[in-house]
Amino acid sequence: MTKKILFLIPDLEIGGAQRILIFLSNILLKKKFKIKILYLKKKNRNTFKLEPKIKAKCLNLDKETNNFFEKIKHNLIRIRKIREELKDYKPSYVISFLTTVNIITIISSINLKQKIIINERNDLKKEIPFAWKFLRFILYRFSHKVVFNQPDSNKILKKFVSTSKIYFIPNPYILRKKNSKVNREKIILFVGRLTYQKNVNLLIKSFYKSNAIKKGWKLIIIGRGSQLNLLKNKIKRLKIKNNIFFNGTSKQIEKWYEKSSIYIICSRYEGMPNTLIESMYYKLAIIGTKIPGVQYLIKNRKNGLLINSNDEKELTKNINLLLDNKKLRNKLGLNAQKTILKKGNPNLFQNKWLKILK
């Protein structure tokens, strides 16, 4: 009998968790699983295209409010609707992504027979509202499995979940296009959401204070987010509009990875960044912050450069180091690709998931 999988996620907007969900869905589809995706809200932005055999349904539960009682009411509605979907679809497994959806999914499945597999895709030390943190502590133990991709998350999860339920599955490289022989340009690249977490403000300040502008380099920023206007205004104030460019979301991201020479990720916290994995695959010289999800892949001066979190001076110094040393850029990029071909092998990702779903 064909096994049914029901995925749950807040939205299908282009993002790291969504990319992994789609990649996993396609793997399971090829393995003859029946796939359905539920997402809570629809945003007016680019979303991932799905295979025709994958069913997707938006529950339109995107109401936001600051009223405490309204929040409770709204989450009860979410729980009721998700429970109805579980009863109707009767999946063998339910795979949910991200903390709030994980918690709501566990509650929705009480006294039902489905096995709940929850995914944590970020740093568990990140501050979240106390109520969600408390519910995570109480409820995660009732899941069938807990999958995480941030190496340090195990230390926190094992405090309230049995170690037999906890699985570390690193993100795989997903872009499969073979590197074409193109000349690298004087481009520093950033790809990701423009939010407080990603700390793009630091990148702009360090780019401005480095020798990059003087030497004819450009900073290309691909992504959207809540800080877009703030960052544009900063660039305007610094009078560097001819040196820093916002490209929104790109459907041809591979071309930017191929053309660029340096990739910078200066996040305050992360799970395991897909964009870091992609830049490693495309042999870019990488500068990243010393956070677990980055340090799992990048070893300082071996396959990239590491800086302390939010350290503008150190980031500026390392930008200048790479600007002036093409040999170092090539060495770091080549070693980065070797690392990700080993640690991010899609077959390892697939095999670990198939083992969980036996």
Results as ranks from 00 to 15, higher is better:
200 V>N: 02
191 V>P: 00
213 I>W: 06
217 W>C: 08
200 V>Y: 01
208 Y>W: 10
213 I>A: 02
179 N>Q: 00
181 K>Y: 12
190 F>C: 10
217 W>S: 06
211 N>A: 04
218 K>P: 12
191 V>L: 10
187 I>V: 15
205 K>A: 05
190 F>D: 05
195 T>L: 11
217 W>M: 06
214 K>N: 10
201 N>E: 15
194 L>C: 07
196 Y>K: 09
206 S>G: 03
208 Y>T: 08
191 V>H: 00
185 E>I: 07
204 I>V: 10
197 Q>V: 14
221 I>W: 00
209 K>W: 08
179 N>M: 07
181 K>C: 05
193 R>G: 07
187 I>W: 12
197 Q>E: 15
195 T>D: 12
217 W>Y: 11
197 Q>Y: 12
205 K>W: 11
198 K>Y: 14
214 K>P: 08
188 I>P: 13
182 V>D: 01
180 S>C: 03
206 S>L: 07
198 K>H: 12
200 V>I: 15
189 L>G: 03
188 I>V: 15
180 S>A: 01
199 N>T: 08
197 Q>G: 12
206 S>P: 05
219 L>R: 00
186 K>P: 09
216 G>K: 07
216 G>N: 11
213 I>D: 02
211 N>G: 09
211 N>K: 11
188 I>Y: 11
215 K>E: 13
212 A>C: 05
208 Y>V: 10
207 F>Y: 10
185 E>K: 14
184 R>T: 02
206 S>I: 04
193 R>M: 14
196 Y>S: 06
204 I>D: 01
183 N>A: 08
195 T>G: 09
206 S>M: 06
192 G>E: 15
192 G>N: 13
209 K>C: 01
208 Y>Q: 05
190 F>S: 06
183 N>H: 08
207 F>V: 02
189 L>R: 02
216 G>W: 13
210 S>L: 03
185 E>R: 12
220 I>A: 03
189 L>T: 06
184 R>H: 10
220 I>M: 10
200 V>F: 05
217 W>F: 13
191 V>F: 01
208 Y>I: 06
217 W>P: 12
182 V>Y: 13
214 K>Y: 08
189 L>Q: 05
220 I>Q: 03
200 V>R: 01
189 L>N: 04
190 F>E: 09
183 N>W: 04
190 F>K: 03
197 Q>M: 13
199 N>D: 15
194 L>E: 06
194 L>H: 09
207 F>C: 02
213 I>M: 01
198 K>I: 13
215 K>L: 15
193 R>E: 15
199 N>A: 14
221 I>A: 00
212 A>Y: 06
188 I>A: 11
219 L>T: 04
197 Q>D: 11
209 K>E: 07
220 I>R: 00
201 N>G: 11
198 K>G: 14
184 R>P: 02
179 N>P: 03
207 F>P: 05
195 T>R: 09
188 I>M: 13
185 E>G: 09
218 K>F: 09
221 I>R: 00
200 V>K: 02
181 K>N: 09
209 K>S: 07
185 E>W: 13
208 Y>A: 01
190 F>Q: 06
219 L>M: 04
211 N>I: 01
212 A>M: 05
214 K>D: 06
220 I>L: 11
207 F>R: 00
